[in-house]
Computed example of a mutant assay.
Amino acid sequence: MSDPGAPGVSVVICAYTEDRWADVLAAVASVRAQSRPALETLLVVDHHRPLLDRLGEEYRETAGVRVLANAGPRGLSAGRNTGIAASRGDVVAFLDDDAVAERDWLRHFAEAYDDPRVLAVGGRTEPVWASGRRPDWFPEEFDWVVGCTYRGVPDGRVRVRNVLGGNASFRREAFDAAGGFATGIGRDGSGRPLGGEETELCIRLGRARPDAVLLIDDRAVIHHRVPEVRERFRYFRTRTYAEGLSKALVARSVGAGKGLESERRYTTRVLPAGVVRGLRDALLARPGGAGRAAAIVAGVLTAAGGYAVGSLRARRDGVTFSVTPIGEGGHD
């Protein structure tokens, strides 16, 4: 049973393709099986009428599950903003449409909000490789490429600059203070694997509320499916380049100081240690050691290239971003 004094949690799952039908059903089922029940689950469909109708029929008689159309422009940010505005919970949690949450996921989130200074809590995301195992060449330092927690994220319950959007929660007042996710940053339906929208929001939140505490609790675990196409080096290269483009947009929105603060530590400490580890494994004849070292170097170079190109484009085109004021939405 849930604590009657604990905040009600709305869970938002954004979906965009019928190709993930089974994944979406599994994601919803994992929320409905939580030890600490969600107040509601909102499925937001991104400009895909057949999927909207199909999910609406699937959950037509399911209490606590609502299916909504993205009310904004195509993309993940607008979909999340639609879910926030329609939600009723004191806390809004986000789960990827191709992930399943462990049974105590929401309980660990809710416990952290006992501290009124806490405005956001994220968790740990574990990869589920379609091939059954991690590719030998794929470095754990780059698990963010497939939407998972990477080597270098601190263990335990710790303060962070930003949470990761596929496994995260925010107190409603965070959106009242900072607005919603910025459209123009992150995945937008173009097919490019962009990101960074949650980073930009968290930095904006920190500016609006300097006393805010943002946490990651690695006991709040979800398992994220990694399809075979994302196990290939071609996707790795495309995603790291897109991350560079995204970081350029984040830096333009909130400034390079805060926008790249965590990334500087990552590139100067975590990644060099990963290269050394890979080379050591190669010397010890362990599978994939040289490949992991090479992938880290390649990832840094392609991300840096994306950042340079993104910065030039942003300056040339005068890129601006739209931040949606969320207000009270459907909150009681």
Rank of each mutant, 00 (worst) to 15 (best):
P4W: 08
P4D: 02
V12W: 03
T17Q: 11
T17H: 14
W21G: 04
A22N: 13
A27P: 05
V28D: 07
A29V: 09
Q34W: 05
S35H: 11
E40N: 08
T41S: 00
T41N: 00
V45S: 04
D46A: 01
D46H: 06
H47L: 09
H47S: 13
H47F: 12
R49F: 02
L51R: 07
D53Q: 14
D53H: 14
E57V: 12
A63N: 05
V65E: 07
V67N: 06
L68N: 01
L68A: 00
A69E: 14
R74P: 11
S77H: 09
S77Y: 08
G79S: 15
R80K: 07
A86E: 15
S87W: 05
L95E: 04
D96K: 01
D98V: 08
V100A: 03
V100E: 07
R103I: 11
R103D: 12
D104R: 04
H108K: 07
F109H: 13
A110I: 05
A112P: 09
L119Q: 06
G122H: 06
R124G: 12
G132E: 01
R134V: 07
R134H: 01
D136R: 09
F138G: 05
F138H: 00
F142W: 12
C148H: 12
T149M: 06
T149W: 13
V153M: 10
P154H: 04
G156Q: 04
G165A: 01
R172F: 07
R172I: 00
A174G: 11
A178Q: 05
F181W: 04
T183W: 04
R187G: 00
D188K: 00
D188P: 02
S190N: 08
S190L: 00
G191F: 02
R192T: 08
G196S: 12
T199D: 10
G206P: 09
R209D: 14
R209N: 09
D211K: 06
D211W: 10
I216Q: 15
A220P: 08
A220D: 05
R225C: 10
R225S: 02
V226H: 08
P227L: 02
V229C: 11
V229D: 09
E231M: 00
E231Q: 15
R232P: 09
F233T: 14
F236R: 11
R239T: 12
R239M: 11
R239S: 13
E243C: 14
E243T: 13
L249M: 11
A251E: 11
S253A: 15
V254Q: 10
V254D: 04
G255A: 01
G259I: 04
R264L: 15
Y266V: 10
V276H: 12
R277P: 10
L279Y: 01
D281E: 14
L283E: 01
P287A: 03
A290P: 03
A290R: 01
R292C: 14
A293W: 05
A293L: 02
A294C: 14
G299E: 10
V300E: 08
T302C: 13
A303D: 12
A304P: 11
V309T: 12
S311F: 10
L312H: 11
R315M: 07
D317H: 14
D317I: 13
G318S: 11
G318Q: 09
F321M: 07
S322C: 12
G329F: 08
G330Y: 05
H331A: 15
D332P: 15
